[in-house]
Design a protein around this nucleic acid. Sequence first.
DNA 1: TTGAAAGCGCTAACAC
DNA 2: GTGTTAGCGCTTTCAA
Lengths: 351, 351
Amino acid sequence: MSIKQQRRGTGSATISDVARLAGFSPMTVSRVINGGGNVKESTRDAINAAIKELNYSPNPAARSLAGVEPIRIGLLYSNPSAAYLSEVLVGSLDRASRIDVQLVVARCEPPENYREAAEHLLERGVHGLILTSPLCDLQEVVDVVTEGDQPVVALAGGKPSDDLITINVDDFEAAHAMTKHLIGLGHRRIGFIIGSPIQAASGRRLEGYRAALAEAGIPADEKLIEQGHFTYRSGLAAADKLMDLAVPPTAVFASNDDMAAAVVAVAHRRGLDVPNDLTVCGFDDTAFASSIWPELTTIRQPIAEMARTAVDMLTDEILAHRAGKSLPREHRIAAFELIKRQSDAPPKNSR
Amino acid sequence: MSIKQQRRGTGSATISDVARLAGFSPMTVSRVINGGGNVKESTRDAINAAIKELNYSPNPAARSLAGVEPIRIGLLYSNPSAAYLSEVLVGSLDRASRIDVQLVVARCEPPENYREAAEHLLERGVHGLILTSPLCDLQEVVDVVTEGDQPVVALAGGKPSDDLITINVDDFEAAHAMTKHLIGLGHRRIGFIIGSPIQAASGRRLEGYRAALAEAGIPADEKLIEQGHFTYRSGLAAADKLMDLAVPPTAVFASNDDMAAAVVAVAHRRGLDVPNDLTVCGFDDTAFASSIWPELTTIRQPIAEMARTAVDMLTDEILAHRAGKSLPREHRIAAFELIKRQSDAPPKNSR
DNA sequence: TTGAAAGCGCTAACAC
DNA sequence: GTGTTAGCGCTTTCAA
């Protein structure tokens, strides 16, 4: 039933098919695809239409064989919260391999070697850089990587600026949503553990919490707010302080899962049941959140998806750069999700 | 100083270079590379020598352009312990993209849909399958995937057999090493939490523990051995039983990190310090191990590396299969590592 | 058992 | 602005 192709060929549309349909030469199609200059507006449109109609996409093998310089992207990470890092890797590796982009991964531990690490990557000829979480918040690191003219994207962190493409969830909105959820459950004394002060997201999460409280007409009580550092250990300390309060909170919202897990541990140590005696919520939905018991209600950032987006955006920038154009630095917002699990309940004395 | 290549070209050796050096045509070289039949022994040797001398390796882009059927590997996973899964993905994606192998990933949740999931992959035209951890231990799943004649590799799990290529650490040796480490610290009453009974590794770990005890002349006490299921929750229950013993253990060795983390939680809840009042060790070195406090002493399986190996072995098999040869099913052992962190110490009353 | 020719899909170089 | 030509490195087909 299947007609054998003349020789081989995958069956999908080629650049010549597009050229024929649009009434131009393959070369012109190639120019359009690669954002090359010097193509008449009308020609470009016709070709784009043909591309769409044929659902054409260039064959990467042919492309690389024809000698285009491959796109290389550097990924700089540090302090690997294993779960976060691997989501980043999964997402970016996946997309990179799909669109045939080389990914060079390097670890960098500021303050020691961030300069070297960045320079090392640049020497390896990367055309753009992805900066992962704690790194995008270190001004020195950002300064170093934005020195050259390669585009840089900050993944889940960093302040939107003219130097940086950023991809974030709306931390304010997310913390706001979680706090509102807690208020909806009936909580009035809601403890909050702030994240590491060096990360911009920490402040935004705190503001979201404050705003939700204010909107509900709940007076702010500064004693309910403790500083943490995104580590389990800092969560332990903060939780202890919170639970030692004369009137302890009925719920604690920690700025990440590690600290939330620590709150659960402290509660248990004190003979408190979670969630019946204390509601605990986290942020990030790392492996932690669903491995401990009870499983944590938390905010999920689509890290893998964001990493994919990062690769895409960076690739677009690099291509634009090669074609001599320049795109404005974009600041993308990804959708968060409130994941309700078993660590939250109405406060005990509510009715 | 650099002489511009005539037009482009990467500079590395091509099939023609090899052909010229060996004194044959590119075609014959191609045959040798692809394991094709009909090449004289002496010719083959000469060409192989030339390949080696030039350090030649075929250009995958050219290859795929020339229309060889791409190698497609299916990866079947379930019950994603996020950390484990992403290590698997990172390793396999990385290697697959490097050697230009397509990886098709599918989730499968037995007992519902393992048959469909496997068949779905096969329909997508995969030439071989990787089975990740809990799956390789389910006989029904193994039966289904080995029905056809595609090669299957079991990654970190499964019983070595004629149907399956397996890649494992030596669970017996690893558990043995950890137990010995604990004994070396001075512990005599060492609790053990067994992993899920459906996974073959659980039994091997238990045996390793037993053997080390026996070697040290420590009489086995069955009360110190509790059944778990690799979940945090089962670890909680097992730890409670262990700590309720008239003479509780001074150390607990859990068959994975999740359960070890649960032991730490129970200890803390009971006012016990880890490691000073109780030593706790895990297995796997997942994110958990280094996120909680104290960080867990544990056994590390080089999952990502093992995944890379899996892709390589499968690819070799598929290539051999295509060339009409058949390799014996290999059973590879990867090296584990005992990661010493802060959750172990000599027993209190030792001196 | 080996080789020659042609072509996979694309783009760089150079016309026009 | 657009087209022509040639060739990237490999494999298939077919002939010797």
